[in-house]
Structures are given as structure tokens and as C-alpha cells.
């Protein structure tokens, strides 16, 4: 499957995703593990673009799924859900067969 993304742009009404930096590393909670302390606290939100046209990287306004107006940096348009069922694993594949064999030997 090829993800069709013709241009890093979006127009008014498109479903888009924006990025917001909520807290810079030095603004974060006082007690954090080392790996967390050195990165910003950030978030991603989807909604419909309110600007006429915008390019990725621009700060834009969106209307969220519940109708709230939010602003953030445009990072994606027509975002897709691409999580999947993963790969088959030999460690799982034989469990059913082995267990049935054991059950059948009891009968």
C-alpha cells in the first residue's frame, strides 16, 4: 500500500494534524527521569483546517472533532491510522497445536 501524499499542503476543511509544544524541557515538572527531562512535553491533535491554505510547518487554526478552535503547527493532512496486526511469530504459531495434542492425549 502506498500512502498518497501529493503535497505537504492542506486546504480549508481538510482533516489535518497539528503539533503543539506544551512545555519546553526547562518548563517541565520538577522531578523527572533523565531520559524525560531533556525533551519537551508535546502533543498532537486532529481537526479540520480553518485557514484557506497552509503548508506543513506553518502555525494554523483547526476545528477539533468537538468543534473547539485550537492552533498548532501543521504536520499532516488526511492522517491515516496505520497500526496493524503485526507479523506472525513462530513463538505463538505452535501453541494451539501443542495444546490440542496434549488435550487429545488425555481423552
Amino acid at each position: 500500500m502506498v500512502k498518497l501524499k501529493p503535497s505537504p499542503k492542506a486546504k480549508k476543511g481538510d482533516l489535518v494534524q497539528v503539533h503543539i509544544v506544551v512545555l519546553a524541557p526547562d518548563e517541565r515538572a520538577p522531578i523527572l527521569p533523565e531520559a524525560t527531562r531533556c525533551v519537551p512535553y508535546e502533543g498532537w491533535i486532529k481537526g479540520y483546517l480553518l485557514d484557506e491554505v497552509a503548508e506543513f510547518g506553518q502555525t494554523v487554526r483547526i476545528e477539533s472533532f468537538i468543534g473547539r478552535q485550537l492552533s498548532g503547527v501543521l504536520v499532516d493532512s488526511h492522517p491515516i491510522y496505520d497500526h496493524n496486526f503485526g507479523e506472525p511469530h513462530s513463538e505463538l504459531n505452535t501453541i494451539g497445536k501443542e495444546s490440542w495434542k496434549k488435550l487429545e492425549s488425555v481423552d
Partner: peptide
């Protein structure tokens, strides 16, 4: 999102409570 919620996908941290 399928049920119509506004979802904030945040990075790791206890600041979830702050936001």
C-alpha cells in the same frame, strides 16, 4: 476518534495531569 472525541496524543510524562 471513531466515537467523536477530541484526542490529545501527548508525549511521556506526569504533565498529563497538568494539561
Amino acid at each position: 476518534e471513531a466515537y467523536g472525541a477530541e484526542v490529545w496524543q501527548m508525549s511521556v510524562g506526569p504533565e498529563l495531569f497538568y494539561i
